[in-house]
Each structure stands twice: as structure tokens, then as C-alpha cells.
Design a protein around this nucleic acid. Structure first.
Lengths: 158, 158
DNA sequence: CTTGACCCTGTAGCGGCTACAGGGCTTTAA
DNA sequence: TTAAAGCCCTGTAGCCGCTACAGGGTCAAG
């Protein structure tokens, strides 16, 4: 099967498949005389495996680490468990950050209803107040948003 | 004040401040004879404003759009409200994706306790099964993870 | 005059793709 | 025989918001 069919059967873009090959996460397939990549069911499985892991939030590096278990099925699986645990931790940290963010945005949103001139808009006023050192409704929890999290504390989408 | 002090007072890296200037999100400050940037309290406020908006998850583009209201305080604030609404929507979509992800990871994690050889590890077996078209515990909800979301449906950290 | 702390520009890297440009291969049909 | 259509190839650059240099200049204090 050529790359186009592999792409269709995995739902993974052609370019992405070639990208995986470049990154060494997908083995180099044999080629036709004309240079076309030829894939087998094996590679189909590999691409699905990669996409599956990606859909679980793993990085390509982590997937590479996982792939090493294919070669040594007798190795202990502690590393696999630890990997999943780390994913869960990361997801939870992101969830915490996003929940906080949602609260903040809602607090800010509550400051304005309807269409006023910007100068009277409670959202705009809050943003300006914060810029001059005042208190903002969104970062009311701990007073100063510059202090705690702003410098890479959490995994929130800063 | 020079860039180092501005950086210290805003908690924003020197390089990041210069980056904001390059991106046109921070106005170009005057310079000393030797070429050093000189900032005033105004710019201090601008940087705090930017960091504040970033901490609310806004992109630099969105912040730029917001800044335009500084020039025209009489414009209607509908756009501001819409911007915050979009943020809230985006955050909620991400939250949904992450919550699903957490469920999946936990389902997967439940497949293995303790240290076995990888070949016996339930996590590993599930991942392999999925790669050959079988059912995985993590994507059990709708059967096939290739179908729905995999192609950029949600904002989950795919 | 030197030291040391600051500042400058320009470029490259991160991750995981995505999107070209500019070309080659292969099959089918006129 | 040739042309068109549809696939494939490589290589490079762009996205986002920084971050991290290298290689140099400036400035105040001692």
C-alpha cells in the first residue's frame, strides 16, 4: 500500500506520516523503483499505535520510549505504569489550571452586560485597573497575579 | 527605567519584552545615545496589561485587538464581551477534552498493578490490541478512536 | 583603564504538525 | 504517441510564544 492509502486507513495525514518517519518514530519502509514508499499491515499497526498514544496525550518522545518495549517483552513494565501516571498527573494539573482560568474569565465576564461604550465597560475597566496595579475581579483569589503562577508555575495555557 | 528593571517589576523576561516589541504589541520606546531602551510607567502598565491578558489565555493577536480600544474609548464594547465569551468557550472545550482524557488514562491505568514483564502488562496489551484494530479500554466510549475526534474535532491536547 | 553589570542585534530552537514549491512516476485514454 | 490526471517525492518555511544563545557594545564605579 502506498502512503495515500495508509493515510486514509489511519486518518493520519500523509505529511504527518512522513514527519513521523523523519523523526524516527516510524521505521523507513522499502520503496518502489520510482521511490514510492510501500507499507504493509505492520506499519498500519504502527501508525495506529502512534495515533492512539497521541490521542492519550503522549509526546513523540514518550511514544518512542514505549516502542522500545516491543523489542524486549520481558522487561518490567514499571516504566509503562510510571509513564501513564505522569500523563494522569499532567492532565490533572492542566485541569486545575483551566478550572481556575474558567472561574477568572467568568468573574471578568460578569462585569459587563450589554453594549456600552468601552470606557464604561466593566471588563475593560477591570483590565485597565489591573494594568495600573489595582485589583481585578479575575485575579481576586490571591490579590496579585504577578506573584504566584505567572512565572511558569502551572501548566495552564499561559 | 531600562529593560532589566522593567523585567524585574513585571516578572516578564527581558527577551519576552523585546519579543513583544518585535511583534508590535508593545510600542517602541525611546533610546539612550548608546541604544538602550528607556521605559516609563506607561510601558510598565502596558506590559502588566499584556501579561494579565496572557494569564487569561488570550493570544497576542487578541491582546492587540483589545489594545485598539485604548484609542477609541467610545466604541461599543460588544467586541470585548465577545472576546471573553470566546475565551470561555475555548476553555470549556479544553476542559471537556481533558476530562475525557483523564477518564481514558484512568481506564488504561486500571489494567495493570505492580511489576510484571511487559508482555503481561495490561496497559501494554491494551495499547497493542488497539494497534491491531481491537478494542481498548481507554477508547471504549465510542468504540473507535480513529473515527470521531482524532481529526481535529476538539481542542484536546492532541 | 579596567572590571563587571548591564544592554544590543540576530539567529536558531522547542513540538507537532501543516503547507507549500517544484518536480517525478504511473496509469489511462484520445 | 502523447497528454492529462492523479498520485508520489524532497526540501523548506511557517505556526505560537517564547527561550537561549553568540558575539558584540555601553556605562558607571573604583
Amino acid at each position: 500500500m502506498l502512503i495515500g492509502e495508509l493515510a486514509k486507513r489511519t486518518g493520519c495525514d500523509r505529511e504527518t506520516i512522513r514527519y513521523y518517519e523523519r523523526e524516527g518514530i516510524l521505521e523507513q519502509p522499502p520503496r518502489t523503483a520510482g521511490g514510492y514508499r510501500i507499507y504493509t499491515a505492520d506499519q498500519l499497526g504502527q501508525v495506529i499505535f502512534i495515533r492512539h498514544c497521541r490521542s492519550l496525550g503522549m509526546s513523540l518522545m514518550e511514544i518512542k520510549a514505549l516502542q522500545r518495549f516491543q523489542a524486549k517483552p520481558d522487561a518490567g513494565c514499571a516504566e509503562i505504569n510510571a509513564l501513564i501516571d505522569r500523563q494522569i498527573d499532567a492532565v490533572r494539573r492542566q485541569l486545575d489550571g483551566l478550572q481556575l482560568l474558567e472561574k477568572r474569565l467568568l468573574a471578568l465576564r460578569a462585569r459587563c452586560h450589554g453594549a456600552q461604550p468601552a470606557a464604561q465597560c466593566g471588563i475593560w475597566q477591570s483590565l485597565l485597573t489591573a494594568a495600573t496595579g489595582g485589583k481585578c475581579p479575575c485575579h481576586a483569589e490571591h490579590g496579585d497575579f504577578l506573584a504566584g503562577e505567572a512565572q511558569g508555575g502551572t501548566d495552564s495555557p499561559l
